[in-house]
Design a protein around this nucleic acid. Structure first.
Length: 272
DNA sequence: AGCGGAACCTGTCGGC
DNA sequence: TGCCGACAGGTTCCGC
């Protein structure tokens, strides 16, 4: 489901609601997500306080007091919701977290691609999974990324989706970013001009920041923690708009499928 | 080594 | 109306 902007909105929402609260109980309802939820999560979390909630790429990090912390990934359909006294049960609820002030937080995930794990060393919080740089202030790392780009033989869209290059971009924003910078999605990364790459980085930053400010994109079942929809969908320029006309040149947006994933682009604005 | 595609799982939607 | 296949924002694994 969620790419960086959605995870950012969700993490902020969690932080606003659970910072400094004490976990009175955590129950695993179904541990069979992408990976089995660690058995000791329940005992680990009991009576711990929430020190912070952070994001790295598409991962969320719940910092607890003590030496162990929670890292989560929402996969495609992972969601959190709050409930007060009455806990309504829904299909695909997997974790229930009770706080000492009576608030409950529930993790629900239809497709079970999400994951929860425990991380110990705080230093690892930003260096796990070989995640690439966060897509902000990219002008300061442009030279590094340019060198890295030159070692790759993939097309530029695949490179954008590579979490080890820049972290946090997914299938929706990859199309949007390439459209914004007028780059053909299947052009080899190595063939990009420096100028075009520069433009790509500034588009990346621009699009993601704007999406965050709009509350993330809503397609199908995305919700933030308070159940609100994101408002970015009306701002999507190519994703899901096949057959409609390009805002810049009026030709039709096309949809191409490769490796099971759809790519949307304008054939005249994004020339090979 | 690094790439493209399949697999993982469940729900929904469109076509026949 | 009903069934079946295609498709969905994620990562990881496997074979070439």
């Amino acid at each position: 489901m969620p790419e960086l902007p959605e995870v950012e909105v969700i993490v902020k929402g969690l932080k606003n609601n659970i910072l400094n609260l004490k976990i009175s109980d955590l129950k695993i309802i179904n541990k069979n997500l992408r990976y089995p939820i660690p058995n000791n999560l329940e005992t680990l979390c009991k009576n711990k306080k929430i020190k912070n909630v952070l994001r790295r790429g598409k991962y969320g990090i719940i910092l607890l007091n003590g030496d162990e912390h929670i890292v989560f990934h929402l996969g495609m359909t992972g969601k959190f919701r709050f409930s007060n006294k009455l806990i309504e049960k829904y299909k695909h609820d997997h974790i229930l977290i009770k706080f000492s002030n009576g608030i409950n937080l529930i993790y629900n995930d239809v497709r079970k691609f999400g994951s929860f794990s425990i991380i110990k060393n705080p230093i690892d919080l930003y260096n796990f999974k070989n995640l690439g740089i966060e897509p902000f202030f990219l002008e300061y790392v442009e030279d590094n990324l340019w060198k890295k780009l030159k070692q790759k033989s993939k097309d530029i869209k695949s490179i954008l989706l590579d979490q080890g290059f820049i972290s946090g971009i997914g299938n929706i924003y990859a199309s949007e970013i390439l459209y914004d910078s007028n780059i053909y999605p299947f052009k080899k990364g190595i063939k990009l001009s420096k100028k075009s790459f520069s433009l790509l980085l500034s588009s990346t930053e621009k699009i993601l920041r704007k999406a965050i400010s709009k509350g993330g994109v809503t397609i199908k079942d995305y919700r933030n923690v308070t159940g609100d929809l994101g408002y970015f969908k009306i701002n999507l320029k190519v994703y899901g708009r096949e057959g409609l006309s390009c805002n810049k040149c009026k030709s039709l947006i096309v949809k191409v499928k490769r490796g099971g994933r759809s790519t949307f682009y304008c054939e005249s604005c994004q020339k090979k």
